[in-house]
Design a protein around this nucleic acid. Structure first.
Lengths: 319, 319
DNA sequence: GTGAAAGCGCTAACAA
DNA sequence: TTGTTAGCGCTTTCAC
């Protein structure tokens, strides 16, 4: 591999002149530049990326923390974030943690070691208090509400969208509703948001038998459906934490000849095909906003409102 | 940010001793090491990642070329490749090209500039001849058959799996079959493989009206179904280039009250939910094998055989 | 066991 | 317009 020194030697010019010529920065006489460019061609020279990073102190690379890439929720975020990064001249490094907090710590340590210019969390296994400690080492943005913590975020308001959804269901005569929530260490926070929304709308607490935690796969959705129906045979609807989970419920209903109104999340293809309602959390927006927040000087929290997409949501009034 | 020099200064030892202590390499007296580690703690020191890369000449980072992240085909590969990378101590950089060959060239140039230790192509917009030129700068692996080119690959044998599928259909009495193929610059190669397989099994050429090119989204699947049925009202089955496309066909059939036997690819959730057959190309295997091939000294080509998953494939003999 | 010093390949401030 | 030089922060060889 030829280095900048080789070019300098071959052309008889100095390293810095070569550098300037290559970077089209500063003054270089046209002939000098031409000569240098010829040498570059001749020696098949290419500036070393890493050396540049070391010199400039910037990597143009951001890290993207996620549990694994096999969940639609993360696909959407990965997609929008990498698209935003591409057009801003950044590259994104996938940092799967498998929900392992130690792996996550390693990634934070890499931020500290200047391996990235910034870090986006699409999920996390450590507390905000812990993550915050790394904010000094580089910009960190979360894709969930960071509340009172001084960390930027682009997020959806779960409680609010659930509340609206429950109101819609209530208006249509629904009373017996099961809810699934996704697994994470903050399950309680998420679940409580749901519970609060339910209570606020229906005036009574969501029964624990109608709350299914740790719903990750369609299979969990089917399990949840089974448990809900065992506890409440008159169940009318299920609000799932994703379209995939809702699809699992759908499958259960097909097998067991049950009718249930389904509401999923994120408007995935499957909700269109199976024709059930879904809460669109606009993950594409969340992703691209999260990326842009990396470059804000101040901590900012951007709420991305959800949209309800109604499909086959029959009224129960006449029932 | 504290540097190794600060630690040296504070402890009164030399940079190299500090380096050895930190890397647990070479001889360092226990007390010296303890003293150094204490200083590391005290100054909140962390070795600079980039400087290490420059010194060692390796990044422990690989680039992953893909058109964009929003296709199940790529999800699977991204997933398995990043999992394999994680356990091997590598990080993966997502390199979306949007099928733009110039963007792809930029990425190859980055390989040349030592930005990555290797490159995996899950799709490509440049010819093998062109890509090959970069093989000197670092290992390159493709997720498609590289044929006679000296480039490693992990791939599925399209023609063979199509042939088996057609044989199965033929045995069940199917004769009128539509086929969709995915868009890429090598459409003709892919389409020809399909056409050859069809011809070999049925003894006559696949009619052009029953071949739909550039199928990318479920919507294309629906369009294909419409066109096929217009050209051949007695159509019996459709072999789609992905489960998503097949799902689009499914949707069309539902709307138009038609019965068609569907065969998708890659055993996505949706094929299970809609209960149609699918060709499992074992993309997870392809991904992890592709990653491991990066580290082989020689060019290797690994064929990953496909599996047929039969679901609701009624026999037409009695019809 | 430890340290001096020479890289790794480049950028940028400053001088000429 | 060009060159000298001092970093960027670390690894590693080779004396001591």
């Amino acid at each position: 591999m030829a280095t900048i020194r080789d070019i300098a030697r071959l052309t008889g010019h100095s390293i810095s002149t070569v550098s300037r010529a290559i970077n089209h920065s500063g003054y270089v006489a046209p002939e000098t530049k031409a000569k240098i460019m010829a040498a570059v061609k001749k020696l098949d020279y290419r500036p070393n990326h890493i050396a540049r990073e070391l010199s400039s102190g910037r990597t143009h690379r951001i890290g993207l923390i996620l549990p694994s890439a096999n969940h639609p929720f993360f696909h959407r975020l990965v997609n929008s974030i990498s698209a935003a990064a591409l057009s801003a001249g950044y590259e994104v490094v996938l940092l799967p943690t498998n929900y392992n907090r130690h792996v996550e710590v390693d990634r934070l340590e890499e931020l500290r070691a200047h391996a990235f210019d910034g870090l986006i969390f699409t999920s996390r296994s450590n507390s905000f208090d812990f993550i915050m400690q790394y904010a000094d080492y580089g910009p960190i943005v979360c894709c969930e509400n960071t509340r009172h913590y001084p960390l930027s975020c682009a997020y959806k308001n779960r409680e609010n969208s659930f509340q609206k959804t429950f109101q819609r269901l209530k208006a249509k005569g629904y009373r017996k509703i099961g809810v699934t929530v996704s697994r994470n260490e903050y399950v309680s926070a998420s679940a409580q948001a749901t519970i609060r929304a339910y209570q606020r709308v229906f005036g009574l607490p969501l029964k624990d038998e109608l709350l299914f935690r740790d719903a990750l796969t369609p299979f969990d959705g089917a399990t949840a459906a089974g448990e809900f129906l065992a506890a409440e045979p008159g169940l009318e609807a299920i609000l799932a934490n994703s379209d995939e989970i809702a699809a699992g419920v759908y499958q259960y209903c097909q097998h067991h000849q049950r009718q249930l109104t389904l509401i999923g999340q994120d408007n995935e293809l499957i909700s269109q095909l199976l024709n059930f309602s879904t809460i669109d959390n606009h993950l594409n927006d969340i992703g691209s906003i999260a990326f842009s927040l990396l470059f804000e000087k101040e901590v900012k929290k951007v709420l991305v409102p959800a949209t309800f997409i109604e499909r086959h949501l029959p009224s129960l009034h006449q029932a």
